[in-house]
Simulated assay, not measured.
Amino acid sequence: MKITLVAGARPNFMKIAPIVHAIQNAKSKGKDIDFRLIHTGQHYDEKMSGNFFEQLEIPEPHANLEAGGGTQAEQTAAIMMRFEKELMDNPTNLVLVVGDVTSTMACAITAQKMQIKVAHVEAGIRSGDWTMPEEINRLITDAITNYFFTTSELANENLRKTGVEENQIFFVGNTMIDTLLKQRPNFKKPEVWDALRLKEKEYIVMTLHRPANVDEESKLKELMDEIINNSQNLPLIFPVHPRTAKILEGLGVSHPRLHMVEPLSYLEFNYLVERAKAVVTDSGGITEEASIMNVPCMTLRDNTERPETMSLGTNELLGTDPKAIQPAMKKLFEGNWKQNQEIPMWDGHCAERIIEILLNLK
């Protein structure tokens, strides 16, 4: 069996790395399986050097389609055209896509039109918010997928409601957690740790990137003011995108405890998260990692596609109203934040289950 693995952005490689390892392991035991790793180039990321792939212990992609830039439609078209040529030049039995970026959707469509079966890892998750490009990508991908690998029973139910057959749904867990648990011993202290003399559980990590939070300038300023004013005397570590940093600078957002730093590598960022008092974010993936590491997580969004991080993890959905910050911080500092419970199948063995299933497909 030949499998083409597709990644379009840095987090996709975190999800794919354990699948690469599971394929390599199966192949070493004489199983008839191999892979070709494709980077669509959807997101240019200067931190994705050879060192990045070394850290994840995976080979560099066999091909980079370099289909970044442009509008959503232009990017989708570029990915589809280049991926079609990739599949013509390198025939495969299955295209495996992960997550919910534009590449996930575009490559699934391309494969199906070429009559190649598609497997979707992280299938069935839903936010219900059609203003998010990711939600559209999820809906379209799952409408044309053959094999659905899911992270939760709720995702299974979402798929059943749309008419997906039970024998197409495989509840396997979360490959992002496979990577987290494998790499946890390798977390790397970032320079900012010593530079700011940080201490365990005595700082807060922040990330903000969604347009709903960073593009409305008055709301962004109010959010930042509320976070600063209610975080007691703790340093706030904010690895910030240059675009967001420029907006904050223009708004005059600054404080001696607010430290805006360059974006960090995966191993450095999770070193900070693991030791933080709490995380304030609008990212979906970080809520998963914080939950597994039992770090309080406040999510500045009105919805989440990962409700298990709230019901079983350490995540609380605050919404985007800045007034929600104060009561959440009060709860944190009073020591009343919920603890992580065991999330079913988030045990570090998801990728092994996926490959075992694929090898046994008739």
Rank of each mutant, 00 (worst) to 15 (best):
N303F: 12
P327R: 06
L251H: 03
V118M: 09
K362M: 12
F148L: 10
T151M: 14
P263T: 05
L251G: 11
A67E: 06
T151D: 10
K277Q: 11
I79W: 00
A143Y: 01
F171M: 13
A26T: 04
P307F: 09
R10A: 07
Q115P: 06
T40H: 00
G128D: 08
F52E: 08
E217I: 13
N294R: 11
D225N: 15
E268G: 01
V164W: 04
W193Y: 12
P235G: 05
P263G: 07
A212H: 14
V101A: 09
I3A: 04
T244Y: 08
D89T: 13
E342A: 12
D347N: 14
N336I: 06
D225P: 02
T304C: 08
K31Y: 14
L332M: 08
H255L: 06
L264Y: 11
P211M: 10
L317H: 03
A143R: 10
T309M: 08
A7T: 03
K201C: 11
T304V: 10
K15Y: 07
F238A: 00
A123Q: 04
Q75D: 06
V118I: 11
I23P: 00
N213L: 04
F148T: 04
G30P: 01
G284F: 03
V214H: 03
D32I: 11
V101N: 04
W193E: 14
K15N: 09
M206Y: 06
K15P: 09
I204S: 03
E316S: 14
M293K: 07
L300K: 00
V253C: 10
E356M: 06
N229K: 14
S127I: 07
M14E: 11
K246G: 09
V98D: 06
I33A: 02
L236Y: 00
